[in-house]
Amino acid sequence: MRYDSTPRILSSEITDETDYLNRREFLRLAGIAAAGAVASSACQADVSGATTSDGLSRGTDLGKLEKSVLSIDDKPNSFEDITTYNNFYEFGTDKSDPHRNAKDFVTEPWTLTVAGECSKPGTYDFDELMRGSTIEERVYRLRCVEAWSMIVPWAGISMATLLKRFEPNSRANFVKYTTLYDPDQMPTQRRRILDWPYVEGLTIAEAMNPLTIMVVGLYGKVLPNQNGAPMRLMVPWKYGFKSIKSIVRIEFTEKQPLNTWQISAPHEYGFYANVNPEVDHPRWSQARERRIGTGLFAEKIPTLMFNGYAEHVAHLYDGLDLAKNF
């Protein structure tokens, strides 16, 4: 149970409060004039819809986002639910911890290191990477391995488009993602409850699937820290723990990388972690899920195969025993 000493805030008011962005915004204001001149040339011919001219640092609002046919029509969960109920162990293991402990998390400047089987490894500035990228709104189902779920209006860029910039070669069978390791800012990293830094992996086909995005925003605004700022993965047909947050490193690998939860408890968490109502977690059933925001008396709802995205991804697993490769 929670006790708030502050008066209750309506969720409609929360979106106006942009504390988490002030620093980024402030630091950037000085650079905008200079960036503006360069930005006008950054729009690529094949890009339509919303483009950012100078990264995501100008303000909290991402502007008009490209709608996606991959979005679902369900009503999203409230901004408050999505930003106060988070599994982001680096900032605490209780789901109410991250929104408190990630408040002062510094995401500016932010660099992404690209390594492994590709032609363009290197260190990339986050704002540079975002410049000229098309940000789409993607309303996705999010299904946690703990049998709860939400509907989230993410804003993100196509992972395939992003990865192709680094020109992965023919030996790039997998993509390994790594979260920031910074125990000064991420208090739980001072305790060894997981093998820090957090690591996740996808097959190259999964990473290049149209559903897979690099999330940079939520509800049309820059991504809040507790949701994985400045950029996090979203693979909506997999359990939430696959969608690694606050990414600092992408490595193209030949061999399947070990992901953090698999290292921690290999009987409970696998590499694939595809949402599957027929394969139970040892400690809870995966047949049904509790939809967050439906109140005390709502029934659990049936969990869908691949979280309802079977038509887009089932072909990736032809011939694979999903009970063994959980």
């Binding site: 149970m1 929670r2 006790y3 708030d4 000493s5 008066p7 209750r8 969960n77 408050e80 639910d81 106060t84 109920y85 789901k95 109410s96 709860w148 509790r290 967050i292 925001g293 109140g295 005390l296």
Partner: peptide
């Protein structure tokens, strides 16, 4: 001021 949060 008491609340059960997102998953009551």
């Amino acid at each position: 001021g008491f609340s059960l949060g997102a998953n009551p």
